[in-house]
Design a binder for these strands. Sequence first.
DNA 1: TGGTCTAATTCAATCCGTTTTATAGGGAGG
DNA 2: CCTCCCTATAAAACGGATTGAATTAGACCA
Lengths: 359, 359
Amino acid sequence: MIISASGWMKKRIEAVINGKKVTLRDVANRLGVNTSTVSRALNPKLKSMITAEKVAQIEKIAEELGYVQNVMAYALKTGSSQTIGVIIPDLMNPVYPPILKGILNVLNAESYIPIIAYCENSIDMALAEIKKMESRQVDGLILSSAFREDKSVEYCIKQKLPSVTVGRALDSHKVDQIVIDNAAGIKLALSHLVSLGHRKIAHISGPQLISDGYQRYRAFKQEMITFGLSLDEELIVFADAFNEEGGTVAANELLSRGKSFTAVIAGNDLIALACISVLEKAGLACPQDVSVIGYNNMPYLDQFKTPLTTIGIPRMEMGVMAAEAILERLKNPEAPMKDLVCQPVLLQRKSTAVVRKSD
Amino acid sequence: MIISASGWMKKRIEAVINGKKVTLRDVANRLGVNTSTVSRALNPKLKSMITAEKVAQIEKIAEELGYVQNVMAYALKTGSSQTIGVIIPDLMNPVYPPILKGILNVLNAESYIPIIAYCENSIDMALAEIKKMESRQVDGLILSSAFREDKSVEYCIKQKLPSVTVGRALDSHKVDQIVIDNAAGIKLALSHLVSLGHRKIAHISGPQLISDGYQRYRAFKQEMITFGLSLDEELIVFADAFNEEGGTVAANELLSRGKSFTAVIAGNDLIALACISVLEKAGLACPQDVSVIGYNNMPYLDQFKTPLTTIGIPRMEMGVMAAEAILERLKNPEAPMKDLVCQPVLLQRKSTAVVRKSD
DNA sequence: TGGTCTAATTCAATCCGTTTTATAGGGAGG
DNA sequence: CCTCCCTATAAAACGGATTGAATTAGACCA
């Protein structure tokens, strides 16, 4: 098919056979123009500097040769890798996929790409991942891994890596944050329970070093008083992680204290699910004997054996907001830091019921 | 703290204030050595060429200045970005997080990083994502998005982008593939159902353009005959996607045909779940009236209202295998293509029961 | 002691694929 | 003929890896 393959063309064919990529230079040579001309012709913003005819030629040849821009070279030259790092504490927690989806959707639209890592809820691991991402010149970071005090995000600040958190907040408010109004959520839960006649309400809290755990705990104590209920510290236990193992241990701890209660507000859905299992093993049915409320509204909850009443949060929207926030911060590095707060919603299902007369 | 900030140092301070990154050159200048010395000192493989004392100095200063390697520059020079692209059809399908976790774990250990994208089960979207990844110089691709015939993976082959598929297979076997032994899975399911006395068994198949859908369908027809059961084509319907919507439509179609059946094998768990809902709405209880088997063993299935009997697949292991396969292929580009097949397992729960006498 | 040879380090220059600044060419208009 | 404008070019980065050449140091021998 190739009639005369001489000079650079020969060399190029050889290169392509060896798996080399087609470069800007290749398409420039093919047309006998300068690389800068090609660069401009292929850049929508600079295209106007080149005659339409030449642009058309260049686009045709580029297509024909299968040219794709080398983003590494672009990044090296311009300092922008068009990449956003995303760090997630736990891949297995079903809360994160929707957040991820929200993030991906907006990044995609802006021709950014995410690099995703998970850190198993360890600050050290998060820091290691952040350094890897830094070395890849990420333009910014979305952290849903942050603790209330967190040296990994301190590192981002020190290195001037633009960052936002999502679903987690720093006590210091040193970065943009997409957060949930946890106090409102707890108030919703408590108000629902109170309306069902519950008064002896327990709380299985999440880790206190994580903003959601801490804020929900604080809100619980606060709102119990606001609702005029007596606050019994013995009805509050702490799970050491927002997962089923943590929930199981904590629920057993609660039961072992021997204090009676008719309802429990769990730190999140996974803890709530574990709690229901523990209660059942102890011969307590949910919701007949005790009502349980979760938090987050993870997927498929409505199809569970005991469809869980929970506090729903706009997960995908949070992802969208996080991505928009980081892009916004890139455009406007000096803007004041802000918290964007999302309102939760009560989703009433089958795990809560009117308190029994006898209680 | 800085005593005399003159020459390069002044310039550097200025640069850092402007948010510039610390470069190899910066640490070289600080010590008055050549960049190549620093490069070698920081490269584990070449470190031996430099005196231990100097290495120590360099490491100290690099740490002090907060130097991190610019992977973009490295990639540009060496042609390797230490990045693997991963394309997933659907972020919301709970099958993928464990696969992703397996992939991440091995890539991490080899200091590779994944770029993750999803394609909503569209080949065109997958192709667009692949081109984006190509432009980012990914060293290889893991595709769990592939169809039986798929121009996006044809493109990878044409562009000499090393690729492997996971959970999906091409009819052509043109790339390495991590697949499930679907015939074995269907055999397991059917054998279980037969042992419970079922003879009139329906199949809600997944999309036929996807290997899992097609192979399970083929296996179903084959095994029905092997088990000596009469194969009624009217008891086979096709869902147009491996999700709940697809399952709902297909299950309604099956019901509308008016043929009686006592069990159904679904193309995957999501379809099975949708099927159970549809059956219930039609007044048919699972498993009392009809037994249902899923495929994939997605998380939390044991806690569902009707704990689903399903065919389990080693999701995380598949991720591990996929990552190892692509890394292996990078080392050894000329090796023959191979299929790695994973064996499924029957997980018996509550959605299957002995067929009623009357049937 | 001086000279030679070798091994161990370090240096300087080049390259990777792009973008971009400054510059040159060429045609139109005055 | 001289400007001015419109295109296109040439050349210099970007940050780090590579490598042949140069320097140094050390060892050995006469």
